[in-house]
Design a binder for these strands. Structure first.
Lengths: 179, 179
DNA sequence: TATTGTTATACTCTATAACTATA
DNA sequence: TATAGTTATAGAGTATAACAATA
């Protein structure tokens, strides 16, 4: 799967035959091929690409499940943080989640409009964020649904594997951010 | 880390003290805390969130490195597929990468404008995509940089772990998409 | 009739600059 | 002077509908 790029490959004109190997050991060595039968080439071995496709799949799964009760992923994450530590300021929540405070304003506006979050004046320039009763019950619903999906991921990956995945993802993220 | 949500927690007013445990075994049990010291709560154990943050970190890394020579992630992926199988039609490449053909038009326009990709008429309604010489050398440069980053990810994760991560990501993606 | 490429459009997410009022 | 919130704005990325030309 290395790329002899500059080698001016005397490649047959178009669409080379499908030589994909089926490995003997039955391990899930990727097919490196998408539905249409088109090969992904070097892309199939790249961490960032695998990460992107998996993340898209999980977000779509979120929208299909938790999304059914009207929560988007970002809103869900905000409500979890506020529930965990009531009274945080907007900037604190935004920073914790990697959201810019300028984009966070509209988000809180919408969550307030939906009646799930409220701003309480801390002093005259900062707001403490809290979940309303409705927000707490909405979050509770969402967490229950999400827990079921995590169970699905557990079954897909096999025993103990999901926790290993979480650990690797965090190590990778932290490792890259601190280089 | 379970959420006693409906339990109407008689939680102390604000900002509970930092009770995070440092595990004895030195394993990388996540801190569940972001830079500002704000806890992520249930979010810290969710696959989708870990995936999202890791993916953002890797894309930023991509922009810092491969991005330096003027390629964005999506352009990179398109050029890899075209290089792997020259002569594919627009729709084929777009499908393989999960891009809608309607959004793919502007992408190919830009890649053509940059002189890296060319459309060749197959018949009078479909175009075969090919890399130009400049496109091949640009891709070659990009692949070399990307390979170095993969080596970094290898070092961060430890021996053999990156391949295990790739395998888990693909199994998770396929598992979710085929439910 | 189905396919291929295309335009137009809209919505979300994200990024930057600049402003206000407060501490 | 620095901070918290805000507005305006622009750019990606992504989604749908509709259309023309062609197979």
């Amino acid at each position: 799967m290395t790329s002899d790029l500059q080698a001016k490959s005397k490649r047959p004109a178009r669409r080379k035959p499908d030589n994909r190997k089926v490995l003997e050991d039955g391990s899930s060595r990727h097919p490196a091929v998408e539905p249409g039968g088109v090969e992904l080439g070097d892309l199939a071995d790249m961490t960032g690409y695998a990460l992107r496709r998996a993340q898209i799949a999980l977000f779509e799964d979120f929208r299909r499940t938790v999304g059914k009760i009207g929560l988007r992923p970002a809103q869900f994450s905000v409500m979890i943080v506020i529930h965990r530590t009531p009274g945080l300021k907007q900037t604190e929540v935004a920073n914790a989640l990697g959201i810019q405070r300028t984009n966070f304003v509209a988000m809180v506006n919408e969550l307030e409009r939906l009646g799930w979050v409220e701003r309480r004046a801390l002093d005259r320039r900062s707001h403490a964020l809290h979940l309303t009763k409705a927000g707490q019950s909405k979050l509770s619903e969402a967490l229950a649904i999400e827990r079921k999906q995590e169970a699905l991921y557990d079954r897909i990956l096999g025993p103990g594997e999901r926790l290993k995945l979480l650990d690797m993802l965090r190590r990778l993220q932290v490792g890259i951010e601190t280089v």
